[in-house]
Simulated scan of single mutants.
Amino acid sequence: MNQLPLSGVRILAVEQYGAGPYGSMYLADMGAEVIKIENPAIGGDISRKTGPFFLGENDSYFFQTFNQNKKSLTLNLKSEQGRKIFEQLVKTADAVTNNLRGDQPEKLGITYDALKHINPKIVCGHLSAYGRDNDRASWPGYDYLMQAEAGLMSLTGEPDQAPARFGVSMVDFMTGAVASLGLTAGMLGAHRTGHGRDVDVSLFDVALHQLSYPATWYLNKGHVTERVARSAHPTTVPCQLYKTQDSYIFLMAMTDKFWELLVTLLDDAVLSSKRYATVVLRRELRDEITLEMDRVLSKFDTKHWLDVLEGKIPCAPVYSLSDAMNNPYIRDIGMVQQVTHPHHTDMQILSNPIKIDGKRLEGNAAVAMGENTDELLAELGYSVQDVQVLKQQGTV
């Protein structure tokens, strides 16, 4: 694509591991020049050393997952020269984003108040565990903790089992995406008004917000949503896993129209009964319907029922990770692409889910730590000799 939506936007990213890098990668994929600032004293982003699968000396498949299309600048922000270089870059940037502990941005001087005298339009994005403005600001925090305290684990899993977390770190990923939305909105506002600002997002706030309508039901009606067997929807029937001859299938006949079509396709006299004719009746008879649906669907394997129902009734097979990755559909739609890495010339990655002008965004392998240091310093006016001195000092 000749002109991506964020082409010409420069973002300085003081980030590591998952949530922050995941969010800023969306911006990089859409054309922003995301300059990842990595501390040379600690070997850069800790995720470069996150196993179990590695690429060369200071790179990993984990790191590659979250850092495509970015530049890497080694810089010690706590050194005097490092701070000087950082402030020079701030003059040229549209935003500074970080995912540090809530008490760190002020200490590092990467808030709007600390930078507005350098660039009044700078937008400072802060992604932390619990926010910067409360008594938990200094607390470390991770995705799974948020799932636990925000009530999400209590809604996940079977009713008679221990609470369960999501299979992947969805709070991290949702928070990264929300942070990038907030940062983009801040940059749009700064472009319009000439004034930047701070934009804060926390893992806890986003996790709590994902409670969505169960939270609204509780706040207004005192209704406590609980886990339902077979990963069922709390109020709509049928919307859950059902047994087939060889495995399970997830069916979602969310409306009376879908239910009527479903019983026609299943061609079963019991399920066609008027006892199940409305959403309310089906909710009251959930357990009875589950038994009847299992009886009918267990007559044939999952493939048979997918052939009968797909495209007519919302349904899906329950795939393992390997099944999901080998599903021909994901390649047909371009959700897997191949990129070149020095240690893996045909590395495969998942594509960005956003399409621009009907086309998938192109991915490029994450670069080596500090790969863009020399070019960025040269842009700021540093000579080759200057850069060599800075490297000897441990500044870059």
Rank of each mutant, 00 (worst) to 15 (best):
S128P: 00
Q147S: 07
S154D: 05
M187Y: 06
P120K: 09
K116Y: 07
G194C: 09
M174A: 14
V171G: 07
R165C: 03
D143A: 02
C124E: 01
T193H: 13
Y130E: 04
G176W: 08
P120A: 10
A177V: 08
V168N: 14
L152G: 00
V178Y: 15
G141P: 04
K116G: 07
F173H: 13
M170K: 02
H126I: 00
A177Y: 09
G194K: 08
A179F: 12
M146Q: 11
A185W: 02
G189I: 03
G182Q: 07
G157C: 02
R136K: 12
C124K: 00
A137T: 09
V168D: 05
P140F: 08
N134A: 14
V168H: 10
T175A: 15
G182V: 11
E149C: 00
P159Q: 04
R132S: 09
A137I: 05
P120N: 05
A114H: 15
A148K: 06
V168L: 12
A129K: 07
G176L: 11
G131T: 04
A148N: 11
R192F: 07
A148L: 09
D172H: 02
Q161L: 15
A137C: 08
S180L: 02
H117L: 12
R192G: 05
D172M: 06
D143N: 01
N134L: 07
G189R: 13
V178F: 15
D160W: 06
A185F: 04
T184L: 15
P140E: 06
G167N: 03
F166Y: 09
T175H: 06
F173W: 10
G194T: 06
S138E: 14
M174V: 06
E149W: 00
D133R: 07
Q147Y: 05
G194F: 10
I122T: 03
M146R: 03
V178M: 14
E149A: 03
L155Q: 00
V178D: 10
K121F: 05
V123P: 04
M174N: 11
L127H: 04
G182D: 06
Y144E: 08
G131W: 03
L181H: 12
G194M: 08
A190N: 10
A179I: 01
A137E: 14
H191F: 13
F173Y: 15
R136D: 11
H117C: 02
N134W: 04
L115C: 06
W139D: 13
T156L: 02
V171S: 08
D160F: 04
A137K: 11
S180R: 04
G189Y: 08
F173M: 12
M174G: 12
G176E: 09
T175E: 12
G125T: 05
F166T: 14
P163Y: 10
R136C: 05
A150P: 05
G182A: 05
R132I: 11
R192D: 11
L155Y: 03
A185G: 01
K121W: 07
Q161S: 15
G151C: 08
Y142L: 08
Y130R: 02
A150S: 15
A114C: 14
A114F: 12
L155R: 06
R132K: 11
A137R: 09
S169Q: 13
G186I: 06
